[in-house]
Structures are given as structure tokens and as C-alpha cells.
Nucleic acid binder design. Sequence first.
DNA 1: CTGAATGCAAAAGCTTTGCAGCCAA
DNA 2: TTGGCTGCAAAGCTTTTGCATTCAG
Lengths: 139, 139
Amino acid sequence: MDNKEKVVEKLRSRGLKITPQRLAIIEALEGNRSHPSAEDVYTELSQRYPTISYATIYKTLETLCELGELMEVNIEPHKKRYDPFTDPHHHFRCVNCGKIEDIPLEEVPMPPVPHEVQEKYGIVGMCVYFFGFCPACKN
Amino acid sequence: MDNKEKVVEKLRSRGLKITPQRLAIIEALEGNRSHPSAEDVYTELSQRYPTISYATIYKTLETLCELGELMEVNIEPHKKRYDPFTDPHHHFRCVNCGKIEDIPLEEVPMPPVPHEVQEKYGIVGMCVYFFGFCPACKN
DNA sequence: CTGAATGCAAAAGCTTTGCAGCCAA
DNA sequence: TTGGCTGCAAAGCTTTTGCATTCAG
């Protein structure tokens, strides 16, 4: 995700409105590396904005995904998580505590996808998920 | 998934019972490469077994996963799919029609995971998901 | 016989939708 | 002023759970 100013500009350029709720959601996400769920965002914001609703959270998260400012991380069945860090990288989930971490490409490269495979499947995206025990849970 | 006889033997060896419902579910899965959801299995079986219930379907699918005879494929948010073909391979989902296909390792190899990364994250599993337009939808 | 499995219904968990009222532009 | 946005409540969809009944071993 770009910084707040750029995201605001992008919203404006699409004719979308800059509401206090959207600003708050953008602020909650900017630089956030915890892979928050919609509930996490709701919980964080409902302290400052007691009347904010899940409907608004979900719709705004979807909008930000459409703008390419946010990525869904579906590493957990039944619960979407969101990642404002949209550069290519992998994800890891601790099967014990549920924590999600990034795995950078320097640690594990992207699997090489031959050009013919790209063509055959019309690939527009891919993701790599790892499962294991995080350092804190390895006891 | 092994053939029906071996799965039955495995169930028996764990002290689990061989019920007609379990047999029917195993039969529906054996050799099935369509990555069916619980609903798919239910729909297929409810014709022959009108009283079979989702509870039974879900519990049996979970049991087969625990026995290592079945794999969850969570390529679709909010809907688990199941794959009786448990050898390592990747999955592809058509963003247009939703069809899920296998991508064998001959087409795309597993990303190389350095030993230190294995250790660091205590890796016990990984999966690679691809998204794009299947041949039939590329119009 | 007996503990495990089934099936029904209800509940749970996450997400989406409808709609009246509100507000950014 | 006005079309898009918000917030509430209700609904939707998949999965899980409680419990009485049934059945495999």
C-alpha cells in the first residue's frame, strides 16, 4: 500500500469519496504487517469510531483490494486476512498459535513458471503458503 | 487416496467403523479429480442415500484428512475443497468459471526451500496456488 | 451389548445485502 | 443538490455442535 496521501489521491481520481471512515481504515492499514482480519480492523477502529460498522469495513477493504492497494491472504480457511504490503512475498502460518508471518523472496524464491505454463493457464496471480511451528511455538 | 480396500483396512486398523455412509463417501472420492466441496459430495450421495447428512459428510471428510487419505484445498475463500490425490502438486483456479485444476510438478517445480528456512519456521507443509483463465475461458 | 457413528436441528462464524438516512463534493 | 457512503439489521453460506437414536463389531 502506498502512503495515505497517495491512496487518497487514487480514491479521488476514481471519483470515490474521502470519508472519515475510509481515512481511518487506511491509517490502520498503513505499514501494518500483522495481516489483520476484518474483525481486527473493526476492533481497532471501534474504539475511536464507536459507530463504525462491519459493512463499511468490508466494503472499504474490498475497494482497496480493487485499487491494488491491498491483498487478500487466504491462508486460514474461513477467515480472510489482508496485507497492505503488496510486493511479491510468501506467507507462513504457525499451526500452533495461528500467527502469520511474511517469508521474503530472499529466503524462498518464487517457483519458476515456464512461459508455456503462463500461457496455458493465463496466469494472473499466484501465492505460496507455508505451514509449520513458529520459533516461539517450537517447544 | 489409496484404493477403497486399503482405506477400509486403515479405518479398521484404527478401530473406526466401516459404515455404509463412509463407504459411499470413499467411493465418491476414489479417483475423483474434480476437487469436490462438501456440498458436491453431499449432492452426489444424497441421490443414492437420501438421508445422509452434512454432519456425516463433514466428519468423514475430516477423518479421511487425519488418516492422510485426503487433502484440503483452500484455494477458494470460504469453501473448503478436498483432493484425494495427495502426491505433491499445485492447484490452479480459473477466476472466471471457478474450475480447479492440478498443475503437476513437471510443469512447475516446488519452490526450493533452504534447510535453514525449514528449520527456522519448522515447516510441516506448503502449498502453491495459481489463478488465471482456463483454456475454455480465454475468450 | 456397547461405544462409536448417524442424522436432525440448531448454532456458530464470517461475510454480504437491503435500505433508510447522511454527507462529501 | 445529489449520488455515493454509512450503519443497522437481517440474511446468506459454509461448517460445527448437541443430542437422541441407530448400528457395526
